[in-house]
């Protein structure tokens, strides 16, 4: 029963990822991308990594996809042209991709992976919070500084020049 859910989620991820790269319109690609990321969040939830799933939705879909869509639709250049899907080398590159897929599949399927315990070790939320502010406080502060620099840069770049 649980397996079927995983297959459905995995299938939807692959399907939406394929549609992302196969759309001719950039806006459609962004929409399919958001659904792909939602499926990835579903995988995280399936693996009981709830915090990670929630952060995935909040940051990726709530932030990054919104940014994509604003960038596509509110700037005149990106959204206008349709993307050319295939050029004259389509068949050859498709064959190369298929061969690559076969190699990867054989490698992954034939590798003796170690069986994980049925219950993966669960890190509680408090541990994540504590480690962010004790062990990893330097990257944490540095990241916030980076975000500040990015925001200031965005404002400077986007300012209307008199």
């Amino acid at each position: 029963m649980a397996d079927i859910i995983f297959y459905i989620i995995a299938l939807s991820t692959c399907l939406f990822a394929f549609l992302t790269v196969a759309s001719r319109d950039v806006f459609h690609s962004a929409v399919w991308l958001s659904l792909t990321l939602l499926s990835v969040a579903a995988i995280y939830f399936y693996l009981d990594a709830q915090f990670l799933g929630v952060i995935q939705v909040l940051v990726y879909i709530g932030g990054i996809i919104t940014l994509f869509i604003f960038a596509i639709k509110l700037t005149a250049k990106i959204g206008d042209k349709t993307i050319q899907q295939a050029n004259e080398q389509a068949l050859l590159s498709g064959l190369a991709a298929f061969v690559f897929f076969i190699i990867l599949f054989k490698m992954i399927a034939l590798h003796p992976w170690a069986e994980l315990q049925p219950q993966a070790p669960v890190f509680s939320l408090e541990d994540i919070g504590k480690s962010m502010l004790t062990t990893y406080v330097l990257p944490f502060e540095f990241l916030s500084l980076l975000l500040l620099a990015a925001m200031v840069g965005a404002i400077v770049i986007g300012k209307v020049r008199k």
Binding site: S34, Q50, F51, V54, I65, I69, S124, L125
Partner: peptide, 25 residues
Amino acid sequence: DLNVGILYVASITSICVLGIFMAGW
């Protein structure tokens, strides 16, 4: 009862923005 309950709600409702923009466009 997810142990990240309230954060889950906040993240899920941020998907609505996408829908509204898609409806508008």
